[in-house]
Design a protein around this nucleic acid. Structure first.
Length: 221
DNA sequence: CGGGCCTGACTAACCATACC
DNA sequence: GGTATGGTTAGTCAGGCCCG
């Protein structure tokens, strides 16, 4: 059957999840770790894992950073975040960083089984209330409780700010090149410089770091 | 000179299509 | 099934231009 890794530092919660899986998916091979490092090690020796259940508040995780590490080390293994948190923005960021689902620890047992089944089927699972609020709330309000790196933005040149602003709007390098009237390769060069100055490794991380920056106020200078 | 800006050449990864 | 191939995108690198 399935081969599943539970990565959570709470023994009681590991046991609970273990039971849920054992009941819902009989015959599955279940492994457990209590910190990120040992989880990373396990993915090296078991690249045939079908799923990793990853706790966000585990030693070595640093929030979503641990998810990125795991995705880098074992990009082929699906990862679902299991967390007590239910903040909409964190859930969406987890998906952006490559998680295939998000299960809240407050979920009833049947819902957890259903969620795991969906994800093993290749679907994406999100908490129902997140989906609902996504659908109804076309007025997106980012609660900017962790607006990062205003001081890092100071290090960016004016042109780099312009490029980053377009990046946050989801434009591709080609679109940015067109709207700023420069070559696409030039945009790539600016993007590279932005990634380096912000200390990140791809444009998604850069966009998340930029958060809800008010570009206009920076560009006014 | 040095830094910002611009560019072409290049590689890696992904994805769809065609073909065997 | 698998795999070859062409297209697109992201990103790096080396180098040239301009200006204080």
């Amino acid at each position: 059957m399935y081969k599943i890794l539970i990565a959570d530092d709470h023994p009681l919660f590991r046991e609970a999840i273990h039971n849920v899986i054992a009941d819902g998916f009989p015959g599955s091979e279940i492994m457990e770790t209590a910190d990120l490092d040992s989880a990373l090690e396990l993915t090296q020796s078991h690249d045939d894992l079908d799923l990793i259940l990853l706790d966000l508040n585990m030693p070595g995780m640093h929030g979503l950073g641990g998810l990125m590490n795991l995705r880098n080390e074992a990009p082929t293994i699906p990862v679902v975040i299991v967390s007590a948190e239910q903040d909409k923005q964190i859930v969406l960021q987890a998906i952006t960083y490559g998680a295939v689902g998000f299960i809240t620890k407050s979920s009833p047992r049947a819902q957890m089984t259903d969620a795991i089944a969906q994800i093993l089927d290749g679907n994406v699972y999100l908490p129902p209330d997140i989906i609902r609020s996504q659908k109804s709330g076309s007025s997106r309000q980012h609660h900017d409780h962790h607006s990062i790196a205003p001081e890092l933005l100071q290090a960016l040149t004016r042109k780099q700010l312009l490029v980053l602003e377009r990046m946050t709007k989801g434009e591709s390098n080609k679109q940015i090149a067109y709207s700023l009237d420069i070559a696409e390769t030039t945009v790539k060069a600016h993007v590279s410089a932005i990634l380096r100055k912000l200390g990140v490794h791809n444009r998604v991380q850069a966009i998340l770091s930029a958060g809800d920056i008010d570009f206009a106020s920076y560009l006014r200078r």
